[in-house]
Design a protein around this nucleic acid. Structure first.
Lengths: 234, 234
DNA sequence: CGGCAAGCAATTGCATGCACTTTTTGCCTT
DNA sequence: AAGGCAAAAAGTGCATGCAATTGCTTGCCG
């Protein structure tokens, strides 16, 4: 095969495949139930089947793909029940992160959170959904890291990524942007007060609202393929 | 190679390898930091390197092994910080499960929980650590399932298994058996009352105590393995 | 015309081989 | 004797090849 795989960045081929396929799944580019043919994927990425197989195995371990022995792999199909359970988990995980953040964030972390949050207010007024999305992701990531608990952070990030294709729909709801900011504000305020319980409750409510908003879209159809590569918006 | 791999049960070779190696890790038979040589493992289990590699990749995705590119795999080494974070996560996860269980368990599930719990009291009086351990596992599993949330259940089971080697020693502590039962009792009582908050708090406290008990052992040394170094295929 | 079975194409699962990277060893220099 | 360098050994990463399984097609029989 071609000696040097051109212009690909870091890590082993398998890692690249995991990221490449995983991205396409969480962005909805590959739809749930879609067949993942080893040979085609190998050809598509110009590698042999071996790294593709390893990548599919790892993605299966992560729950992003489903593998039937001798019958190939498909993008994991999430039932309504499982989707609901993931959203509920997400709410609880975010609540924990927010509570811990309120109790444990360093003053530097609190400052950074507040500053970024206030900065994002401008984007709401401008209705800059794309840019707000970036701040939103950053905002939540700060909460996860602020919990000062590596394992919870890991679980939360993982759950969040698996929900990504289902969250993007809420975009469409009018006024969601402003409401989202207000909900974030409630979380920030509670964290600044050091009120863990209030922060947790605010975070849980925030996610619940996102969940309901998404459920509207997720009701009938599975997530639609993405034209953009952006992921989050709550 | 030998045509039929003798007396190994189900699934593909890779699945068997994942279970085999994973078991050896969570039972402490393979110690953290121990080198996992692909060739040796392949020879031990009488398969080629390919399924071993895939298994190691999946175990790496699960966090049980650590893989350095081009430098082989080792059993994941957990720092004190990460161990603490996992125990803390465990406490929070169990708290969530208990709270949800209190709110959602069917009457059949409540009945089963209570019955099993009462039955295990006998084992405490007999100081039957081994048997109690079995009931203990079953007890917690009931809580996870009773939460009626597949994703939280998954995360909890996974976290629990990663903590398994560190929890092992706790029942050696004198009087721990009886205390454990009493803590379970508090959880059961709260669940029967349908008091989610109390159940959550009781579960969190329970895990915290286990965590502290385990920390005693984990303090100096990594979890102990079987004294022999031989690793044989099952 | 429908159902069933045998053959066939397609695809997965695993073994093997080779190239490249890391690590070790042994020799040479200072 | 210690340090550094180079060549060899060991081990990982990926490609390829072959056996085995699946499910699809086709032809036969009821």
């Amino acid at each position: 095969m071609s000696g040097k795989r051109s212009l690909i960045r870091s890590g082993t081929t398998v890692d690249q495949m995991v990221r490449a396929i995983g991205d396409r799944i969480v962005t909805g580019f590959l739809r749930p139930g879609e067949k993942l043919d080893e040979t085609s994927l190998a050809a598509r990425f110009d590698v042999s089947r071996t790294p593709v197989r390893e990548a599919l195995g790892q993605l299966s371990a992560m729950g992003l793909v489903e593998r039937r022995p001798n019958r190939g792999a498909i993008v994991a199909v999430v039932t309504q029940e499982h989707l609901a359970s993931m959203f509920e988990s997400m709410a609880e995980l975010e609540a924990i992160c927010a509570r811990f953040s309120a109790e444990r964030m360093t003053s530097a972390e609190r400052r950074a959170l507040e500053i970024e949050h206030q900065a994002s207010a401008r984007l709401v007024r401008l209705r800059a959904e794309e840019d707000y999305e970036y701040f939103n992701t950053e905002f939540h990531s700060r909460l996860y890291r602020g919990a000062h608990n590596g394992h919870i952070c890991e679980m939360t990030v993982m759950t969040r990524s698996r929900l990504a294709p289902f969250r993007r729909a809420q975009f469409m709801l009018p006024g969601r942007l402003a409401k989202s900011w207000q909900e974030h504000d409630a979380i920030v305020t509670a964290i600044m007060r050091g009120d863990g319980n209030a922060a947790g409750k605010a975070a849980r409510d925030h996610v619940s609202i996102v969940s309901e908003a998404s459920a509207v879209f997720a009701a009938g159809d599975q997530p639609k393929a993405a034209s953009t590569t952006s992921v989050t918006a709550d």
